[in-house]
Protein backbone atom coordinates (compact mmCIF):
# COMPACT_ATOMS: atom_id res chain seq x y z
CA UNK A 1 0.00 0.00 0.00
CA UNK A 2 1.12 3.53 -0.69
CA UNK A 3 1.99 5.24 2.56
CA UNK A 4 0.30 8.69 2.77
CA UNK A 5 1.52 9.58 6.23
CA UNK A 6 3.03 12.98 6.98
CA UNK A 7 4.46 13.99 10.34
CA UNK A 8 1.93 16.58 11.47
CA UNK A 9 -0.35 19.45 10.50
CA UNK A 10 2.52 21.86 9.81
CA UNK A 11 4.02 19.40 7.35
CA UNK A 12 0.65 18.75 5.72
CA UNK A 13 -0.17 22.40 4.96
CA UNK A 14 3.34 23.79 4.41
CA UNK A 15 3.03 24.24 0.64
CA UNK A 16 -0.45 25.78 0.52
CA UNK A 17 0.18 29.07 -1.30
CA UNK A 18 -1.57 32.42 -1.07
CA UNK A 19 -4.56 32.53 -3.38
CA UNK A 20 -5.24 28.80 -3.14
CA UNK A 21 -8.75 27.39 -3.32
CA UNK A 22 -9.41 25.29 -0.21
CA UNK A 23 -12.22 22.99 0.82
CA UNK A 24 -12.66 22.52 4.54
CA UNK A 25 -14.90 19.78 5.90
CA UNK A 26 -17.32 20.18 8.78
CA UNK A 27 -20.84 21.26 9.64
CA UNK A 28 -20.84 24.04 12.19
CA UNK A 29 -17.88 23.11 14.37
CA UNK A 30 -18.51 19.38 14.04
CA UNK A 31 -15.96 17.50 11.97
CA UNK A 32 -13.77 20.50 11.17
CA UNK A 33 -10.02 19.98 10.60
CA UNK A 34 -8.92 21.73 13.80
CA UNK A 35 -5.23 20.87 13.58
CA UNK A 36 -4.87 21.95 9.96
CA UNK A 37 -6.65 25.24 10.60
CA UNK A 38 -4.26 25.92 13.50
CA UNK A 39 -1.32 25.17 11.24
CA UNK A 40 -2.69 27.44 8.50
CA UNK A 41 -3.00 30.25 11.05
CA UNK A 42 0.74 29.98 11.68
CA UNK A 43 1.49 30.55 8.03
CA UNK A 44 1.77 33.91 6.31
CA UNK A 45 -0.63 33.35 3.46
CA UNK A 46 -3.63 35.30 2.23
CA UNK A 47 -6.14 35.63 -0.58
CA UNK A 48 -7.56 32.18 0.08
CA UNK A 49 -10.88 30.99 -1.27
CA UNK A 50 -12.53 28.75 1.30
CA UNK A 51 -15.31 26.36 0.38
CA UNK A 52 -16.99 25.23 3.57
CA UNK A 53 -20.61 24.83 4.63
CA UNK A 54 -20.12 27.29 7.50
CA UNK A 55 -17.51 29.85 8.47
CA UNK A 56 -16.82 28.76 12.03
CA UNK A 57 -17.52 31.07 14.95
CA UNK A 58 -15.67 34.26 15.85
CA UNK A 59 -12.98 32.55 17.89
CA UNK A 60 -12.85 29.03 16.48
CA UNK A 61 -12.50 27.27 13.16
CA UNK A 62 -12.53 29.28 9.95
CA UNK A 63 -13.61 32.30 12.00
CA UNK A 64 -9.98 32.60 13.11
CA UNK A 65 -8.79 32.65 9.49
CA UNK A 66 -11.29 35.40 8.73
CA UNK A 67 -10.10 37.41 11.70
CA UNK A 68 -6.54 37.12 10.40
CA UNK A 69 -7.71 38.31 6.95
CA UNK A 70 -6.40 35.23 5.21
CA UNK A 71 -9.64 34.69 3.32
CA UNK A 72 -10.59 36.58 0.17
CA UNK A 73 -13.71 34.62 -0.63
CA UNK A 74 -16.03 32.23 1.18
CA UNK A 75 -18.32 29.76 -0.55
CA UNK A 76 -20.82 28.56 2.06
CA UNK A 77 -24.48 27.84 2.71
CA UNK A 78 -24.94 29.26 6.20
CA UNK A 79 -22.79 31.73 8.08
CA UNK A 80 -25.16 32.85 10.83
CA UNK A 81 -22.93 32.06 13.80
CA UNK A 82 -20.12 34.41 12.92
CA UNK A 83 -20.37 38.15 13.63
CA UNK A 84 -16.96 38.97 12.13
CA UNK A 85 -17.98 37.21 8.94
CA UNK A 86 -21.21 39.20 8.72
CA UNK A 87 -19.31 42.43 9.36
CA UNK A 88 -16.71 41.74 6.64
CA UNK A 89 -19.45 40.70 4.25
CA UNK A 90 -21.69 43.72 4.78
CA UNK A 91 -18.71 46.08 4.53
CA UNK A 92 -17.58 44.46 1.28
CA UNK A 93 -14.17 43.33 2.59
CA UNK A 94 -15.03 39.70 2.04
CA UNK A 95 -16.40 38.18 -1.14
CA UNK A 96 -19.10 35.64 -0.44
CA UNK A 97 -21.01 33.15 -2.50
CA UNK A 98 -23.93 31.74 -0.57
CA UNK A 99 -25.38 28.60 -2.10
CA UNK A 100 -28.03 26.13 -1.01
CA UNK A 101 -26.59 23.43 1.21
CA UNK A 102 -27.67 20.53 -0.99
CA UNK A 103 -26.33 22.31 -4.06
CA UNK A 104 -23.02 22.88 -2.27
CA UNK A 105 -22.80 19.21 -1.31
CA UNK A 106 -23.66 18.08 -4.83
CA UNK A 107 -21.32 20.56 -6.52
CA UNK A 108 -18.48 19.21 -4.42
CA UNK A 109 -19.55 15.64 -5.06
CA UNK A 110 -19.72 16.39 -8.80
CA UNK A 111 -16.22 17.89 -8.69
CA UNK A 112 -14.80 14.72 -7.21
CA UNK A 113 -16.83 12.49 -9.50
CA UNK A 114 -15.98 14.16 -12.80
CA UNK A 115 -19.48 15.50 -13.47
CA UNK A 116 -19.10 19.09 -14.73
CA UNK A 117 -22.70 20.17 -14.16
CA UNK A 118 -26.13 18.97 -13.05
CA UNK A 119 -29.68 20.27 -12.71
CA UNK A 120 -31.36 20.90 -9.36
CA UNK A 121 -34.71 22.40 -8.35
CA UNK A 122 -33.13 24.24 -5.39
CA UNK A 123 -33.07 27.99 -5.96
CA UNK A 124 -35.41 28.21 -8.97
CA UNK A 125 -37.08 31.63 -8.85
CA UNK A 126 -34.52 33.02 -6.40
CA UNK A 127 -31.35 35.12 -6.54
CA UNK A 128 -29.42 31.86 -6.73
CA UNK A 129 -30.80 31.23 -10.22
CA UNK A 130 -29.59 34.54 -11.65
CA UNK A 131 -27.41 33.99 -14.71
CA UNK A 132 -27.88 30.22 -14.64
CA UNK A 133 -29.41 28.03 -17.30
CA UNK A 134 -32.98 26.96 -16.54
CA UNK A 135 -34.45 23.86 -18.09
CA UNK A 136 -37.75 22.07 -17.76
CA UNK A 137 -37.79 18.33 -17.12
CA UNK A 138 -41.15 16.54 -16.91
CA UNK A 139 -43.00 19.78 -16.29
CA UNK A 140 -40.78 21.16 -13.51
CA UNK A 141 -38.05 23.81 -13.74
CA UNK A 142 -34.49 23.09 -12.72
CA UNK A 143 -31.34 25.17 -12.82
CA UNK A 144 -27.87 24.14 -13.87
CA UNK A 145 -25.11 24.12 -11.29
CA UNK A 146 -21.44 23.43 -11.97
CA UNK A 147 -18.94 21.26 -10.17
CA UNK A 148 -16.59 22.59 -7.49
CA UNK A 149 -12.98 21.52 -7.13
CA UNK A 150 -10.19 22.67 -4.87
CA UNK A 151 -6.41 22.94 -4.92
CA UNK A 152 -6.41 21.49 -1.42
CA UNK A 153 -9.23 19.69 0.41
CA UNK A 154 -8.75 19.50 4.15
CA UNK A 155 -10.86 16.95 5.98
CA UNK A 156 -11.16 15.48 9.44
CA UNK A 157 -11.98 11.84 10.16
CA UNK A 158 -12.36 9.72 13.27
CA UNK A 159 -10.05 6.94 12.18
CA UNK A 160 -7.71 6.57 9.27
CA UNK A 161 -4.94 4.28 8.13
CA UNK A 162 -1.59 4.91 6.51
CA UNK A 163 -3.10 4.11 3.10
CA UNK A 164 -5.45 7.08 3.51
CA UNK A 165 -8.66 5.14 4.15
CA UNK A 166 -11.04 7.07 6.38
CA UNK A 167 -13.88 6.32 8.77
CA UNK A 168 -16.03 9.13 10.15
CA UNK A 169 -18.08 9.24 13.32
CA UNK A 170 -21.62 10.48 13.89
CA UNK A 171 -22.68 13.65 12.13
CA UNK A 172 -19.02 14.73 11.90
CA UNK A 173 -19.01 13.03 8.50
CA UNK A 174 -21.10 15.73 6.72
CA UNK A 175 -19.12 17.34 3.86
CA UNK A 176 -15.82 15.56 4.54
CA UNK A 177 -16.17 12.57 2.17
CA UNK A 178 -17.16 14.62 -0.89
CA UNK A 179 -14.45 17.18 -0.22
CA UNK A 180 -11.85 14.45 0.11
CA UNK A 181 -12.67 13.43 -3.45
CA UNK A 182 -12.75 16.98 -4.85
CA UNK A 183 -9.32 18.14 -3.78
CA UNK A 184 -6.33 18.02 -6.12
CA UNK A 185 -4.38 17.40 -2.94
CA UNK A 186 -6.41 16.10 -0.02
CA UNK A 187 -5.14 16.39 3.52
CA UNK A 188 -6.82 14.20 6.12
CA UNK A 189 -6.33 14.62 9.84
CA UNK A 190 -7.58 11.82 12.05
CA UNK A 191 -8.12 11.21 15.72
CA UNK A 192 -6.60 7.77 15.43
CA UNK A 193 -4.10 6.77 12.75
CA UNK A 194 -3.51 3.02 12.37
CA UNK A 195 -1.35 0.87 10.08
CA UNK A 196 -2.90 -0.17 6.76
CA UNK A 197 -4.77 -3.40 7.37
CA UNK A 198 -6.09 -2.49 10.81
CA UNK A 199 -9.37 -1.00 9.54
CA UNK A 200 -12.13 -3.28 8.29
CA UNK A 201 -12.44 -2.63 4.52
CA UNK A 202 -16.21 -3.11 4.86
CA UNK A 203 -16.43 -0.06 7.10
CA UNK A 204 -14.37 2.44 5.08
CA UNK A 205 -16.31 5.62 4.21
CA UNK A 206 -13.62 7.30 2.11
CA UNK A 207 -11.23 5.07 0.15
CA UNK A 208 -7.58 6.04 0.37
CA UNK A 209 -7.33 6.88 -3.34
CA UNK A 210 -8.76 10.32 -2.55
CA UNK A 211 -6.27 11.13 0.20
CA UNK A 212 -2.73 12.34 -0.54
CA UNK A 213 -1.62 13.20 3.01
CA UNK A 214 -2.75 11.86 6.35
CA UNK A 215 -1.60 12.62 9.87
CA UNK A 216 -2.43 11.81 13.45
CA UNK A 217 -4.16 14.86 14.93
CA UNK A 218 -3.63 16.02 18.50
CA UNK A 219 -5.48 17.88 21.25
CA UNK A 220 -8.93 17.95 19.68
CA UNK A 221 -11.14 20.51 21.37
CA UNK A 222 -14.32 19.52 19.48
CA UNK A 223 -16.10 22.61 20.63
CA UNK A 224 -19.88 22.40 20.94
CA UNK A 225 -21.93 25.33 19.62
CA UNK A 226 -25.27 24.56 21.23
CA UNK A 227 -24.96 22.44 24.32
CA UNK A 228 -28.47 21.08 24.79
CA UNK A 229 -29.34 18.53 27.44
CA UNK A 230 -32.44 16.85 28.70
CA UNK A 231 -33.68 15.39 31.95
CA UNK A 232 -31.59 14.16 34.83
CA UNK A 233 -28.18 12.59 34.79
CA UNK A 234 -28.77 8.90 34.14
Amino acid sequence: MINKTVANAEEAVKDIPSGAVLMLGGFGLSGIPENSIDALLQRDIKGLTCISNNAGVDDFGIGLMLKKRMVKKMISSYVGENAEFERQLLSGELEVELIPQGTLAERVRAGGAGIPAFFTPAGVGTEVAEGKELREFDGKLYLMERWLKADFAIVKAWKGDTAGNLIFKGTARNFNPMMAAAGRITIAEVEELVPAGDLDPNQIHTPGIYVQRIFQGIDYEKRIEQRTVTGERS
Binding site: S76, P100, Q101, G102, A122
Partner: peptide, 12 residues
Protein backbone atom coordinates in the same frame (compact mmCIF):
# COMPACT_ATOMS: atom_id res chain seq x y z
CA UNK B 1 -27.07 37.69 5.64
CA UNK B 2 -27.04 34.33 7.31
CA UNK B 3 -27.50 32.21 4.23
CA UNK B 4 -30.14 29.77 3.13
CA UNK B 5 -28.59 26.63 4.58
CA UNK B 6 -30.68 23.72 3.40
CA UNK B 7 -33.93 25.66 3.12
CA UNK B 8 -33.88 26.13 -0.66
CA UNK B 9 -33.25 22.44 -1.28
CA UNK B 10 -35.98 21.47 1.18
CA UNK B 11 -38.70 23.78 -0.14
CA UNK B 12 -37.91 22.85 -3.75
Amino acid sequence: VKGMGGAMDLVA
